[in-house]
Amino acid sequence: MFTGLVEEVGAVLRIFPAGDVTEMEIRAPGISAGLCKGASVAVMGACLTVTALGRDSFTVEMMEETVRKTKLGRLKTNSPVNLERAMRLGGRLDGHLVTGHIDGICFLAEMGGQGKTRLATFTAERELTRMIVPKGSVALDGVSLTVIDSDPVRGLFSVGLIPETLRRTTLGTLAVKDPVNLETDLIAKYVRRFVLPAENDSRGGSTRGEITWETLRENGWI
């Protein structure tokens, strides 16, 4: 589990296939000394496991699903990456609960704003934007941000970027149409799963009915 507060912007040293996984070595002098084999690290928001350590670097493995479903498969040598070590249970939670499980990729549609702050608008699949609400939280490339506005019908949402975020993360270098790893709010996923009708199961039947006033009465809730 992570908080969405980036500790360091590292750099990809190399990416190479290793059997049925892809390995990536990352230069990170700021956090590598505090890592060990088996530790979890959020790389651009994706939770990965450390498999080897260098003097100021570490190596992680990526399954095919990770390479395909996130922007990590698009990284190259020298690509900058946001990094965060796993949070300590009992510590302060300055961002929000981030699992490191990427829901999909969104794309920068517009970067506006006045002065030192920026208003960034992103486009994403409507299935994802349905779980994004104003004043809620999202993690973009591993950065915890507060949603300013959301339009699920058009597949759009916007966040504000303060100067500190622009300086200390990769979000400050984004250009229009750039891909960004998106993790929606953890609580919203479960609420939507329990409230909305379940998708049909493999046999063609519904695994659970829609919650209505009638079903609430039948089960003694009202």
Rank of each mutant, 00 (worst) to 15 (best):
D149Y: 06
N181R: 02
S150Y: 08
I162V: 15
S150H: 06
N181V: 09
L171N: 01
T146F: 01
T173I: 12
N181E: 04
L140V: 08
G155C: 10
T184C: 15
R167S: 14
S150W: 09
L171Y: 02
R168L: 15
D185N: 05
T184A: 11
D149Q: 13
V143Q: 04
T146Y: 05
L140I: 12
E164Y: 15
S158F: 03
T173W: 13
F157P: 09
A175Y: 00
D178N: 14
V176R: 12
L145K: 04
D149V: 00
T184I: 15
D178M: 12
E183V: 05
V147N: 04
L140K: 03
I187L: 15
L171V: 02
E164G: 00
G142P: 11
T170S: 07
I187P: 08
F157S: 07
V180N: 00
S150K: 02
I162K: 07
L166W: 10
I187W: 09
P152Y: 09
S144G: 06
N181G: 06
V176G: 00
V147Q: 00
V180Y: 05
V180E: 04
I187T: 14
E183W: 10
T169P: 12
V159A: 07
D178S: 14
L171W: 02
L156S: 04
I187M: 14
E164V: 13
T184K: 11
V138L: 00
P163S: 00
A139Y: 08
L140C: 07
L145M: 11
T170E: 06
V153M: 09
T173D: 15
L174Y: 13
A139V: 03
V153I: 14
T146E: 01
V180A: 02
V147H: 02
L161G: 01
R168K: 14
L182Q: 03
K177V: 11
L166Q: 13
G155M: 12
D149W: 01
T169E: 10
I187D: 04
K177Y: 07
D149K: 06
N181C: 03
L182V: 01
L145W: 12
D185L: 05
T169M: 11
F157H: 09
L182F: 02
L156C: 04
D185I: 05
P179S: 11
L186R: 00
S144P: 07
T173L: 13
A175E: 15
S144I: 10
T165Q: 05
I148M: 10
R168M: 14
A175M: 14
I148L: 13
V143M: 08
T170W: 07
T184R: 13
D178T: 12
E183L: 06
A175T: 15
L182A: 01
L145S: 09
N181S: 06
G142Q: 10
G160Q: 09
V176T: 14
D149C: 04
L140A: 07
I148V: 14
D141P: 07
D185P: 04
G142K: 10
T165M: 08
D151N: 10
T165Y: 01
K177F: 10
T170G: 11
A139N: 05
L156K: 13
V180F: 09
L186W: 12
N181Q: 02
D149A: 15
P179N: 09
D185Y: 06
F157Y: 12
S158Y: 06
P179H: 09
V143I: 15
V176M: 03
L161D: 07
T173E: 15
T165V: 11
R168W: 10
E183P: 01
D178W: 13
G142C: 08
S150V: 12
L171G: 02
